[in-house]
Amino acid sequence: MSADAPAWEQRSTARVVSPVQPRKLAKVPFVELADGRLQGVVSSGSDIGRVYVSSVAAGTHTYDCSTNNNRPCGGLYGAPCKHLRLLVDEAVIQYGLDRVAGYLRAEVGDDGDLIGALGGGVERTPAAMVFSRFLRHLTYLELPGATTPVPELHWFPAGVAR
């Protein structure tokens, strides 16, 4: 047996998903690439109890922003509002520009301006689905910890592919 790296397909611990990059969560607590959209939740700057649900559709690059109660965002005049800009910026930190642009099927120029490449205009999408996904995301933090071993986690070593 040699020290050569074995075939990826034959590895029990093959890396499939890269862990996301750490980022500040204060303004944008939730970002995901799911349901054919870049979507997430942006905390309101003025009202601590209010959040905005912002999303950009893959392919068509239409976008939307509203409160979690489905009131349209006042900042959305034919161009992405500040919430959408924050969402895109934080998504790029979390996943890297290539993964976000790839998911949205967006052509980004050399300047790396992703939001500028998204010209689909406003298309209303229901905020409830994204907001409930965010709430589900938060429920993970409410689950109790455990002290019985979880042997299955040997398939999920911490660390990053190098």
Partner: peptide, 9 residues
């Protein structure tokens, strides 16, 4: 072994 649920971020 001690474990906890978390989120990706």
């Amino acid at each position: 072994s001690v474990s906890a649920a978390k989120v990706d971020t």
